[in-house]
Design a protein around this nucleic acid. Structure first.
Lengths: 346, 346
DNA sequence: AGGCATTATGTAAACCTTTACATTTCAGGC
DNA sequence: GCCTGAAATGTAAAGGTTTACATAATGCCT
């Protein structure tokens, strides 16, 4: 038995484009063209090249290609916190589009640490990434400020945004979604409606808060407004839930800016022997998988997460091709009524 | 006002090591050494180089470095399904160690699709990744078989494993964890204990199943064994839960191979008006964040996820350095008793 | 058949680092 | 002051691909 895999050099060396060229009896340029721009190569040569590639078992060296082309075919998806299940389907949507176009996705978990975010941004300048989809506003603005206005800075935002920096954005209308939730609660007879927001200053939460206030005002209930602040996580939902509910004048409904917090509130209510939806209605936000399996099933606002991911990646690809990009794409959310909301009891 | 950033070439070109060399008055080799092996450069030169770097704003071109060094400083973490929150903390542990060592992590979501897995494996041969941490056994074995036995094939497994391929593995003792759970249920007086496994044939599930059977046997309860199969997700827990419970001779306890399934079972029990833990005890597996916030709080088995991630990455780094690696690292799990389990009622 | 416009191919430089090898510098011992 | 060995630095090749430019081949028209 002998080794049939001849590369022409050291027996264990990996075949390069040169080996292919030799096997196909043409120059490396032709091989490269046959791969990158097949239409620029005659049918017969293309065929010969393809055979040669198969014969020597060639695979392009990507580092060399990246070096030459000054690109990386890598997109960073910057998340505030990878453990939040809200993001997984967005990522999934991004990957579909990205892979299609020959791009990879590098998931960047900031863990609420500015240094991490900075490190991921640095990948842009070192050619290790071609663009960023930003899914958090919890990063130092200085990272972006410098490039603000530059029309094709390869950065798009999804879901989250900055109030004072205008970047291409793919998101739902948070104000409207919030109005819809509050309207619904009012229609059930609720008057004392509290809201549990995400981190203070977060623009999407401010939008939702605005929707909350506007709708209360519209119904003449603004003096009943009651706002608590959480961090999107279970624990803060539980703690703030206890604070809101352990109180004689407690609200009859709580609108939460995340499902995890809503589930925390449900636990707080149980602990205080407050029945849901009998004595308290709870609305969440995001419609994560879990929201169908908690007790009671959660009324919540659903975002088209997969589509958001797809559109975001699509926009970024446009940007990378130097094309103009829609500054603001608004996708529609909708209220999913389940069992955590009901008519107010008196 | 004039531009102070002079690169010596096109005004917008990014500074290279040549620019640094010129600014520092030395050769590119010296600059390179000052960065890679500072001890091989005299103190004064090193200082001069560092200043030059700061002055011209140099950052190494990673693609060029990767090309020359034939490495990518990238590790792939291959997951069955990114939306499973079980993995996020493992990833987190991996990242801590990886970043420390100058590596990046590329999260590969297989989505139960062999083609995806194959694509990620291909990154190895094209030098786009240096190694893989495999967190799923749901991939074509052919991808690994070829390299089986090769002592420093840059692949380690975490949590999951193959029954017939021996690879470095970092995991808990699933058999023992399962025994512990069942022992505990027996100690509460349960006799009819069912188990809801993950996908059939999954080695870790087989281990857990073996633990289940062994423990039942030890207590003379093996003829009461009752096994249902799920897929780790909420829905399958709910469906199989209904099937197991909607039955005159239903079990008084169910041991589930994931927390999500356990929560699905809780929902099934509610729907059938079976109280937990009054009429039914439920045990989960993994101790995901949610398990403290469902109703009732879930008794479950906790894996040291962060540590598993760290050790896995550590082992992989050893492998990449050509060092010998412990074939099997067993970390300890423990049973967390919460409110979903109780003494059997009669 | 000759000329012209395409089309196909080849040559070689460029992308930016790293590193083997060669050369220079330096310190210290005599 | 000279020699030796070690330390510091420089030179230039190598890594694999892409692509601008040059050249060769082809097809078409008259």
């Amino acid at each position: 038995m002998f080794n049939t895999q001849v590369t022409g050099k050291h027996p264990h060396s990996v075949p390069t484009i040169k080996d292919v060229a030799k096997a196909a009896g043409c120059s490396t340029a032709t091989v490269s063209r046959a791969l990158a721009t097949p239409e620029k190569v005659s049918d017969t040569t293309r065929e010969r090249v393809n055979q040669a590639i198969a014969q020597v078992g060639y695979a392009p060296n990507i580092a060399a290609r990246n070096l030459r082309r000054a690109e990386s075919k890598t997109i960073v998806a910057l998340l505030p916190d990878i453990s939040n299940p809200f993001f997984s389907e967005i990522i999934s949507g991004m990957e579909d589009v990205a892979h299609q176009a020959g791009y990879q996705i590098l998931i960047g978990d900031c863990e609420h640490d500015p240094a991490r975010a900075e490190a991921y941004f640095r990948l842009l300048s070192t050619n290790q990434a071609d663009g960023i989809v930003l899914l958090t506003s919890e990063i130092p603005k200085a990272l972006i400020k410098q490039a603000d206005g530059q029309a094709d800075f390869p950065l798009v935002m999804a879901c989250e945004f900055f109030s004072d920096i205008d970047l291409p954005l793919i998101a739902i209308d948070n104000h409207q979604a919030s109005c819809q939730a509050i309207d619904y609660l009012v229609s059930l007879g609720h008057q004392r409606i509290a809201t549990l927001t995400g981190p203070a200053g977060n623009p999407i939460c401010l939008e939702r808060l605005r929707g909350y206030r506007d709708t209360l005002s519209a119904h003449g209930l603004i003096d009943q407004a009651c706002v608590a602040e959480g961090d999107f996580g279970f624990r803060s939902g539980f703690q703030q839930g206890l604070a809101l509910l352990d109180n004689a004048q407690r609200p009859t409904a709580i609108f939460c800016h995340s499902d995890e917090m809503a589930i925390g509130v449900l636990k707080a209510a149980r602990q205080l022997n407050i029945t849901v939806p009998g004595q308290l209605s709870v609305v969440g936000f995001d419609n994560i998988g879990l929201s169908e399996y908690c007790e009671p099933e959660l009324t919540t606002i659903s975002q088209p997460r997969n589509e958001i991911g797809q559109q975001a990646m699509q926009s970024l690809l446009h940007l990378l091709r130097g094309e103009r990009v829609i500054r603001r794409q608004t996708l529609s959310s909708h209220l999913i009524v389940r069992k955590s909301t009901g008519r107010v009891s008196d």
